[in-house]
């Protein structure tokens, strides 16, 4: 039980740490990001670092 709670706490801290580090990203920054779940059609790409050497267009969109 104690271990489960500890694991959950650590996981939450990891998420917070990730959000905090990426919160500073903007033009001129070099964001690091590892996907928690591989994107659809990622074909083995698991992080932004995997794409170094190729330009990446990130399109933020919505289905509605």
């Amino acid at each position: 039980m104690k271990n489960t709670m500890k694991a959950r706490l650590l996981a939450s801290l990891a998420v917070l740490a990730c959000a905090a580090s990426s919160a500073s990203a903007g033009v001129g920054d070099t964001p690091e990001y590892k996907f928690r779940k591989p994107p659809v059609n990622a074909l083995g790409v698991t992080s932004l670092a995997d794409l170094r050497g190729k330009p990446v267009l990130v399109d933020f969109w919505g289905t509605r």
């Binding site: 990203a25 001129g28 070099t30 964001p31 932004l48 170094r52 990446v56 267009l57 399109d59």
Partner: peptide, 12 residues
């Protein structure tokens, strides 16, 4: 929508 271009060296 919003678009970002990340360069070959990983910079936005």
């Amino acid at each position: 929508p919003e678009t970002a271009l990340v360069g070959v060296d990983g910079q936005i």
